[in-house]
Amino acid sequence: MQYVDVSHTRAYVSKSLHFHARAIRMAEKTDYEALAANLLKAELKRKGVTYAQLVERLNAIGVDEKEVNVRNKLSRGKFTAAFLLQCLSAIGSQTLHLG
Rank of each mutant, 00 (worst) to 15 (best):
M1Y: 07
D5W: 08
D5L: 09
D5F: 09
H8R: 14
H8N: 11
H8K: 15
A11R: 10
S14I: 02
L17T: 05
L17W: 01
H20R: 06
R22T: 05
R22E: 06
A23R: 04
I24N: 00
I24S: 00
M26V: 12
M26S: 11
A27L: 11
E28D: 14
K29R: 13
K29L: 12
D31Y: 09
Y32Q: 12
A34L: 14
A37W: 01
N38G: 13
L40G: 03
L40I: 12
K41S: 10
K41T: 07
A42T: 09
A42F: 06
E43S: 12
K45L: 14
R46L: 12
K47N: 05
G48R: 05
T50S: 15
L54N: 01
E56I: 04
I61L: 10
I61D: 07
G62C: 05
G62V: 03
G62N: 03
G62F: 02
D64S: 11
E65A: 07
K66E: 10
V68K: 04
L74G: 00
R76S: 14
R76H: 07
G77K: 02
F83A: 04
L84V: 10
L85E: 06
C87M: 06
S89L: 09
A90N: 05
G92E: 06
S93H: 06
Q94Y: 12
Q94G: 15
L96S: 06
H97M: 11
H97T: 14
H97S: 14
H97N: 13
L98I: 10
G99K: 14
